[in-house]
């Protein structure tokens, strides 16, 4: 189990790197979908069953398909947009990574243990997290209205 999760983490990191490095946008979106699926497997391995299912449904389903649809809408033949400031970005990110990595490799506590069943998550969302849950619903509604307002045609 432990070695299987190590392999899945490795695959998640490799495919996340390929999202950044690959030249073709469609390949990049497919690597992103694979990375989301690997994160869902990590969720399932610590007992978060509801979140694993939601990760597969929303991320690899909805977000991945929407990314692919927008890539097909806005793609241009023969024009690839390069990266900018590669080496200074590596230096900056490497410095930040050293700062984060140094305190966090000393954490040796256990993870997981609680069963994230749908029933328990639902009870939690309607008792302790009730106000954030209602705020999220308003945010989602305003995001839908805002997206349809932004994307409408001017001549109608």
């Amino acid at each position: 189990m432990q070695s299987l999760m190590l392999i899945i983490s490795f695959l998640v990191l490799i495919s996340a790197l390929m999202v950044i490095l690959s030249e073709d946008m469609v390949h990049s979106a497919l690597f992103l979908i694979f990375s989301f699926g690997g994160v869902g497997a990590l969720f399932l391995s610590v007992g978060a069953q509801f979140l694993g299912a939601i990760q597969i449904l929303i991320y690899t389903g909805a977000v991945g398909v929407m990314m692919l649809l927008m890539i097909y809408f806005t793609s241009k033949e023969g024009k690839s947009i390069k990266r900018e400031g590669k080496y200074s970005g590596i230096v900056l990110v490497g410095l930040l990574g050293f700062l984060i990595l140094y305190p966090s490799i000393s954490i040796t506590r256990e993870v997981g243990g609680t069963k994230g069943l749908t029933q328990n998550i639902g009870r939690l969302l309607f008792s302790d997290l009730l106000i954030p849950f209602e705020v999220i619903s308003i945010v989602l509604l305003s995001a839908i209205i805002g997206a349809t307002y932004i994307i409408r045609r001017e001549d109608h």
Partner: peptide
């Protein structure tokens, strides 16, 4: 998700992050 060991608050919060 990984550090919500004693209770489920972390997992509930992660579902809110997914919606956002």
């Amino acid at each position: 998700v990984a550090f919500s060991t004693e209770n489920l608050i972390g997992q509930g919060f992660a579902s809110l992050v997914i919606a956002i």
